[in-house]
Design a protein around this nucleic acid. Structure first.
Length: 678
DNA sequence: GAGCTCTGAATTTTT
DNA sequence: TTCAGAGCTC
């Protein structure tokens, strides 16, 4: 490669290590990048550099953890070298799953799939496995058979970890080990059922991809399709994904993976730190570059984070440092209870806001989605706008799933789960009749319109006719705008919605949002795929057309905060049992992962870090009215860590604080709007 | 076979 | 509290 210095002056923006990574020649490269060391920047520059060197952008594959991350990097890459901007559009960027989807539709035939396959999300996959579990009579044994969720989790572990059922049971689900003989045929049938029905679950997307590249001829062909492969967040990939990469690099070993073993937090999904630790072995001739200068956090924050991660066992030794010496030490705030924690956090948010830090530069982080419930109530009450990332998903709401199911059966008439769901919405149709109806459709060559000739009991006839008409319209509208199709579905579905659910108003509004999202798509298939593989990630994605005056506070699970940074970070509920979560302290490995999770949370902060925990928890459910218990501090804050923190004890709440806070927060939304008035 | 009522159990992170 | 599933009635 010849370096045309004149065109590459932007390389000077990088430190020497980053430069080495960006301008690296051919062959495998592992970049071990600590938190905040400019990982995104490095990847973006690498893309720009490759394009500047004449690499065909359409032959670059950038695999990231979310679509958002890919878009962000490509946007930056486009900015770096102006002439690169139109070209980056052609770069293949996205998640493993989304890329699998694209490739599998192109090579459907070779993969033994039909191009119009639909995708089962986790809920559908669980339901399908539950259905088969039921059909096999596994549900009424004297000893309880694992629930459908557990069944799918076991299955998924086997697939993602490339592990044998026996080992998975012994290692991760010992209480289900007695059921091995029943589970195996259950899984076998689950697999053939999906194939019959032309549907893929999340794991299948990876599995079929692996199968594709395990064929020498195909591995060769796919290797040629991409000149360079770049992988972000490599510490959170699983065995299957590592196998995919090996296959994709069959005849070309230009691959760059970037990751931080200290930030591996997706073990529950089969991700393994081994991928990053073993990368040099898997790809002989690997060079390793370490990025150790943290540009994000002030030194005191980094010190605390370093002390926390020092408790981890196996890792690439790294020495993160920052030259941002100034700044406050992180605070560990002990609150009386959750209410006081909310008050404290809101008070600080408003104070920083008054001092000029916009709301969207501040984030509240927590371990589990529901841990922000009471804070959300307070924020709403005080008119402080926020967007929440992670936690309960829009798509998991039953009315949204209902509506999507209509689109899915129109797209893929063999999609059994979609039919089952939609048919049972109608009065007088339960699991039995629904199954018969599906059989009827199968017998008529899977023609969706044949549902019109299915005979139902008199009481259900009228609705069934209206349903058949809807399906027929959808089939004929195949290539029309998906938003129009949703409108058609809603004509049939809205009355049902009002009958079926408690709060039809709010649910109906969700469907309007869905229609709005759909209006950004031309093809039904693309809309469906994006919805399932890159779903809206925050409550803000659904708020309809964006308002330019919006500034909002960020609430996020720690998992969803990965890769992000904020000026001020509040880590709430840092009490043992919540962080680490009680659900994840069964094994040494799990606890290690919780430790890394804590590390991820702390390293999101640029300038200010507040860690808080309530002393007293009132048990909101299952217990008597005034039952409460005392919390223990998070076990990862050892004595050493404590020395790096400023401790604050809030014994009792003061009226004064409350009042001043009330004034502060008065219509903050209004003031934010005013900022845009001329 | 649909759909209601009662009981008992669980409760994280996400593609 | 909420949800899934079992069992009962129409």
């Amino acid at each position: 490669m010849n370096k045309k210095a004149a065109n590459l002056s932007w390389l000077e923006d990088l430190n020497p290590q980053q430069q080495t990574a960006v301008t690296y020649g051919d062959g495998p490269l592992l970049v071990v990048a600590g938190a905040g060391t400019g990982k995104t920047k490095t990847l973006a520059y690498r893309v720009a550099y490759l394009i500047a060197q004449g690499v065909n952008p359409g032959k670059i594959l950038l695999l990231t953890f979310t679509r958002r991350a890919a878009q962000e990097m490509l946007r930056r890459a486009a900015h770096i070298a102006q002439r690169g901007s139109p070209a980056t559009v052609r770069v293949w960027g996205g998640t493993f799953h989304a890329t699998a989807n694209r490739l599998l539709r192109i090579y459907a035939k070779a993969a033994g799939l039909s191009k119009d396959f639909t995708i089962l999300d986790q809920g559908d996959a669980e339901d399908l496995i539950g259905l088969i579990r039921h059909e096999k009579g596994l549900h009424n044994r004297e000893k309880r058979f694992p629930r459908k969720r557990t069944c799918l989790a076991i299955y998924s572990r086997c697939v993602n970890g490339s592990l044998r059922l026996k080992d998975v049971l012994e290692r991760y689900f010992p209480w289900c080990a007695a059921w091995e003989e029943e589970l195996r045929p259950l899984f076998k049938q689950y697999v053939s059922r999906k194939q019959e029905r032309n549907v893929l679950d999340y794991d299948d997307l990876l599995l079929y991809w692996v199968q594709l590249v395990s064929d020498e001829k195909f591995a060769n062909r796919l290797s040629k399709r991409f000149d360079h492969i770049l992988v972000d967040e490599y510490q959170d990939t699983n065995k299957l994904q590592a196998q995919i990469l090996l296959g994709m690099r069959y005849g070309n070993n230009n691959i760059m993976v970037v990751g931080d073993d200290a930030q591996s937090i997706y073990g529950f999904r089969g991700a393994t730190v081994r991928n990053i630790l073993d990368f040099p072995k898997e790809f002989p001739g690997t060079s390793i570059v370490k990025l150790e200068q943290n540009y994000r956090s002030i030194a005191p924050v980094l010190e605390t984070a370093n002390l926390v991660i020092a408790g981890a066992k196996e890792r690439y030794p790294k020495n993160l440092w920052s030259d941002r010496e100034e700044g406050e030490r992180p605070k560990l705030v002990t609150c009386k209870d959750e209410t006081q924690q909310n008050e404290y956090v809101i008070q600080q948010i408003l104070r920083h806001y008054e001092e000029g830090i916009a709301l969207h530069k501040q984030a509240v982080l927590f371990r589990a989605g529901h841990l922000s419930d009471s804070l959300e109530l307070e924020l709403t009450r005080k008119n402080i706008p926020y967007h929440k990332y992670g936690g309960l998903r829009f798509l998991e709401a039953s009315h949204v799933k209902d509506l999507i199911a209509f689109l899915r059966l129109a797209e893929n008439p063999r999609d059994e789960m979609a039919w089952l769901r939609v048919l049972q919405l109608m009065d007088g149709i339960g699991p039995g009749t629904a199954s018969q109806a599906i059989r009827h459709v199968v017998e008529h060559g899977n023609s969706p319109e044949s549902i019109g000739t299915f005979n139902v009991r008199p009481s259900a006839r009228k609705q069934m006719a209206a349903f058949a008409e809807t399906v027929s319209d959808l089939v004929h509208a195949g290539s029309s705008h998906p938003a129009l199709q949703i409108e058609r579905i809603r004509r049939f579905y809205d009355p049902l919605l009002h009958k079926l659910y408690e709060n039809p108003g709010a649910r109906s509004r969700d469907l309007v949002s869905l229609e709005q999202i759909a209006s950004g798509y031309r093809l039904r298939r693309d809309f469906l795929v994006d919805l399932q593989l890159d779903p809206p990630t925050s409550t803000g994605d659904l708020a309809g057309p964006p308002h330019r005056e919006d500034d909002w506070l960020v609430l996020s699970t720690i998992h969803s905060a990965k890769g992000c940074e904020w000026d001020v970070v509040y880590l709430i509920h840092a009490a043992d049992g919540f962080l680490p979560s009680d659900m994840a302290t069964g094994s040494e490995e799990e606890i290690e992962e919780e430790l890394r999770l804590t590390y991820v949370a702390l390293t999101r902060a640029r300038d200010f870090l507040y860690i808080s925990w309530p002393l007293r928890y009132y048990h909101r459910w299952y217990a008597m009215s005034d039952s409460s218990s005392y919390a223990q501090p998070c076990r990862f804050f050892t004595d050493d860590v404590m020395k790096s923190l400023d401790e604050v004890y809030l014994e009792q709440d003061s009226e004064v604080d409350r009042r001043s806070e009330a004034t502060n927060s008065r219509d903050i939304a209004e003031r934010i709007r005013e900022m845009w008035e001329e």
